[in-house]
Simulated scan of single mutants.
Amino acid sequence: MNPLLRMRGLRSGYAGGVVLDGVDLDLEEGGTLALLGRNGVGKTTLVSTVMGLVRPYGGSVLLDGRELAGARVDVIARAGVGVVPQGRRVFAPLTVDEHLTIATRRPAPGPWNRARVLDLLPRLGERLGHRGDQLSGGEQQMLAIARALLGNPRLLLLDEPSDGLAPAIVSQVGEVIGEVSAQGMSVVLVEQNLGLALSAAGTVAVMRKGVIVHRSTGAECASHPEDLRRLLGVD
């Protein structure tokens, strides 16, 4: 069976400099892949390249057989790719209600609507009248996830969703990832938090200097944590 997402030889960077230097990566439909690596190895660049925010120098990004490498951001989004960016990027003056309204202005077919998102993330329902700058970090993260889900993507990219969050909120993020994956959505999780990555992902890939140097199941990584830490270069 062909994977939903297939990258081959993906190269990109900034101002002529190479950050991704030939990334090969596959993800099946409904699967969750954790992309691990130290800061600066190219993980966020990969997310930005897949989303069309960074134009690739070469290589291929196929979503269900459709070539997306080099396409515009809006074309990629309509093809079924959603993103929860690093830092949340919630609009400070807009309320939760206004964020959700904007996200559903052009509804995409699929199972995720406003009612279902608020059922999954009930805290947002309690904060509908609050502005983005009145939300806690965890609430902002849940709003960023809700906004992405309302686009009904087939592939969801989450870039460092645990960054700056309390352990209880990190655990909630993991539960949300599990729920959307169980509903058939494919997820690429870029993370530094090994606990979240290993609990949420069926597959783990390690990036070093812009290439994938290791791939295995989450269970294998969890049973050999010393090998994973050695690959990541952490104590």
Score class of each variant (00 low, 15 high):
Asn2Pro: 15
Leu5Ala: 12
Arg6Pro: 10
Arg6Tyr: 04
Gly9Asp: 15
Ala15Lys: 10
Gly16Thr: 01
Leu20Cys: 04
Leu25Asp: 07
Glu29Val: 01
Gly31Glu: 02
Thr32Tyr: 02
Leu35Pro: 06
Asn39Thr: 01
Gly40Arg: 11
Ser48Pro: 00
Arg55Gly: 09
Arg55Leu: 07
Gly59Asn: 08
Gly59Cys: 06
Leu63Arg: 06
Asp64Gly: 15
Gly65Glu: 03
Leu68Trp: 02
Arg72Ile: 01
Val73Gln: 03
Val73Asn: 02
Ala79Ser: 02
Gly80Lys: 00
Phe91Trp: 06
Phe91Lys: 06
Pro93Leu: 06
Pro93Trp: 02
Glu98Trp: 08
Arg106Ala: 14
Arg106Gln: 12
Pro107Cys: 14
Pro109Leu: 13
Gly110Tyr: 11
Trp112Gly: 06
Trp112Ala: 09
Arg116Asp: 01
Arg116Phe: 00
Val117Met: 08
Val117Trp: 04
Leu120Lys: 11
Pro122Asp: 02
Arg123Cys: 00
Leu124Gln: 01
Gly125Met: 06
Glu126Trp: 03
Glu126Lys: 05
His130Trp: 07
Gly132Lys: 08
Gln134Gly: 09
Gln134Arg: 13
Gly138Cys: 08
Gly138Phe: 09
Gly138Asn: 10
Glu139Trp: 03
Gln140Ile: 05
Gln141Thr: 04
Ala144Asn: 14
Arg147Phe: 06
Arg147Leu: 00
Ala148Ile: 04
Gly151Ile: 02
Arg154Pro: 03
Leu156Asn: 12
Leu156Gly: 09
Asp159Ala: 12
Asp159His: 12
Asp159Met: 12
Pro167Asp: 05
Ala168Ser: 15
Ala168Pro: 00
Ile169Thr: 10
Gln172Leu: 15
Gln183Leu: 14
Met185Gln: 12
Val187Ser: 10
Val187Lys: 14
Val188Gly: 12
Leu189Val: 09
Gln192Ala: 06
Gln192Lys: 14
Asn193Gly: 14
Gly195Lys: 15
Ser199Glu: 12
Ala201Arg: 10
Ala201Lys: 13
Ala201Cys: 09
Thr203Leu: 11
Lys209Arg: 14
Val211Phe: 00
Ser216Phe: 00
Gly218Cys: 06
Glu220Ile: 07
Glu220Ala: 13
Ser223Thr: 09
Ser223Leu: 12
Pro225Ala: 08
Glu226Val: 08
Leu231Asn: 12
Gly233Ile: 04
Gly233Arg: 07
Val234Asp: 03
